[in-house]
Amino acid sequence: MQRRPRFSARLIEGAVMEYGGWTNYETWAVFHRFTGEPASAANWNEKAARISEKFCSISAAAETTQFATFDASIVECEGKARDALANVLKDEALDNIEIESGLHRDLLVHALGRVNWHEVARHMLEGLE
């Protein structure tokens, strides 16, 4: 896993709003946990590619004949792929919490609730290009 950057979070009105260009530390940490090791990165690249293909295959987008609508369908398919991958990522993270109950589980679930799953998914899908 990659090391944490040597910069601090930016504070806005007393609340952490950004971490090194990411929404927050939790989002950055999740992205790097899923993509920081070669086996994990390969696994998530494959999942992201399958989801992208499902929603954004050229044949699916080409069903529309008008050029403007074609562009809109590309944007729509990217949004659907991002939503689907974000859900898969979140489910994977929450389903693999091995702590049954207690303070540690509560804190972990809270931290995962702060993750911007769409941002993680967007970065993964952009990595496919």
Rank of each mutant, 00 (worst) to 15 (best):
E92T: 15
T27F: 08
A81E: 03
R114K: 15
I51D: 00
N24L: 03
A9Y: 08
R4T: 12
A60Q: 13
S59E: 15
T64M: 03
S101F: 15
A49Y: 06
E13C: 06
G102A: 11
G20D: 13
T64W: 01
Q66L: 14
K90R: 15
C77K: 06
L85N: 00
E63T: 10
W22V: 04
S40P: 02
A68N: 11
M124D: 04
I51K: 04
R122W: 06
S57W: 09
A84Y: 03
G14Y: 14
Q2A: 05
W44H: 01
A111I: 00
L112M: 04
L128C: 06
F7R: 08
K54E: 10
G79I: 01
E37G: 07
L103N: 09
A93M: 14
T23S: 12
R33H: 09
A49S: 13
S59G: 11
A60R: 15
R114Q: 14
L103P: 04
A61E: 02
G36S: 15
T35V: 03
T23N: 05
L11H: 09
A111D: 11
I97G: 07
S52D: 11
H110M: 03
A29C: 02
R50A: 10
I99Y: 06
K47T: 13
C56M: 08
N45G: 07
K47L: 12
N43W: 05
C56V: 02
E92V: 10
N96P: 02
L108V: 10
T65R: 14
R82W: 01
E78P: 00
N116G: 08
T64Q: 05
A72W: 05
M1L: 03
H123T: 09
E78A: 14
H110I: 00
N116L: 09
T35A: 08
N45P: 01
F55L: 05
F67H: 13
L125D: 02
A72K: 13
Y25D: 00
R4D: 02
N43C: 05
H123P: 00
D95I: 01
T23F: 02
R82V: 06
A9Q: 12
V88Y: 07
G21S: 02
N87V: 09
T27L: 04
C56E: 03
P38H: 10
W117C: 00
E76C: 03
A39C: 05
G14E: 07
W44R: 01
S40Q: 13
P38N: 10
L125M: 04
A29W: 07
D71G: 05
F55S: 04
F70D: 02
E78S: 12
E92N: 15
E92K: 12
N45C: 00
S40M: 12
T69N: 07
N87F: 00
R3Q: 12
E78W: 12
A39S: 11
E100R: 15
I99Q: 14
T27Q: 04
A39L: 15
E53W: 05
S101I: 11
P5W: 02
A15I: 09
G102M: 12
S59F: 13
V88N: 01
I99W: 08
A68L: 13
E18G: 01
E126Q: 14
W22H: 03
A68P: 01
P38F: 08
A62G: 04
V30Q: 09
